[in-house]
């Protein structure tokens, strides 16, 4: 474990806490893409299939359980909780996210570290996470003004994988046999998808103005 990866995991956890706070405090999920939340639930379920078989550390197991439980809880809130469900922007959240699932799984069948059930689902989860934010970014562009907590949620979610890139650089420089091309390339693509969001987020922070993504 290095400081970049720990900072990345804490930023990821923070993004989830900010989203939970937004939904709990405002009893609303306006501006939040249910489809992105569903994709993230699939990402965690596919990536942590080894939750009970491979013990890495207490921290690792604890965080996996937190990520799985929180992503399922958020999807449940948006789908089932009567007050939250009412505020879901159904007609704005129209990205065909099942195509992202199909494409990621197809890619994982061809590009993986080992042709085993766990490794294919792990690669699938890496590819899917790289594109999981797309429905959310499209929703933000369509819904015009973005409330602070939703903007902070997306910012921290994008920043966490950026910190992981620093972690991979650090591990590549300090560990002799460290090569994680699948995670690294996907992580760069994932962070690059946030580029324009980061730009507008920075502008809104600098001008102390409302975050607005151009349509």
């Amino acid at each position: 474990m290095n400081i970049f990866r720990l900072a990345g995991d804490m930023t990821h956890l923070l993004s989830i806490l900010v989203l939970l706070l937004k939904i709990y405090a405002t009893k609303s999920c306006s501006g939040v893409s249910r489809k992105t939340q569903e994709l993230y639930a699939i990402v965690f379920l596919a990536r942590y299939l080894d939750l009970f078989t491979d013990f890495i550390s207490v921290y690792n197991t604890f965080m996996k359980i937190v990520f799985i439980a929180s992503s399922l809880a958020i999807v449940w809130c948006i789908r089932v909780h009567p007050m939250v469900k009412r505020s879901y922007d159904k007609d704005l959240d129209t990205f065909r996210h099942y195509l992202l699932v199909a494409a990621s799984f197809l890619l994982a069948l061809f590009l993986h570290e080992k042709f085993t059930f766990l490794e294919i689902f792990w690669a699938f989860s890496i590819y899917l996470e790289a594109v999981a934010i797309l429905p959310q970014l499209v929703l933000l562009q369509r819904s015009g003004n973005v409330d602070n907590l939703t903007g902070q949620y997306v910012f921290f979610l994008g920043a966490y994988r950026g910190l992981y890139i620093l972690n991979w650089i650090y591990r590549y420089l300090t560990e002799p046999r460290f090569t994680r091309w699948i995670a690294c390339v996907s992580g760069v693509v994932q962070t690059a998808l946030y580029a324009d969001f980061f730009y507008y987020y920075f502008i809104s922070w600098k001008n102390n103005s409302k975050l607005k993504l151009p349509a």
Binding site: D9, H12, D54, K114, Y164, R177
Partner: peptide, 10 residues
């Protein structure tokens, strides 16, 4: 000992 293909990252 974590061998290489163990995904030790989240």
């Amino acid at each position: 000992e974590i061998d290489d293909d163990d995904h030790d990252e989240l």
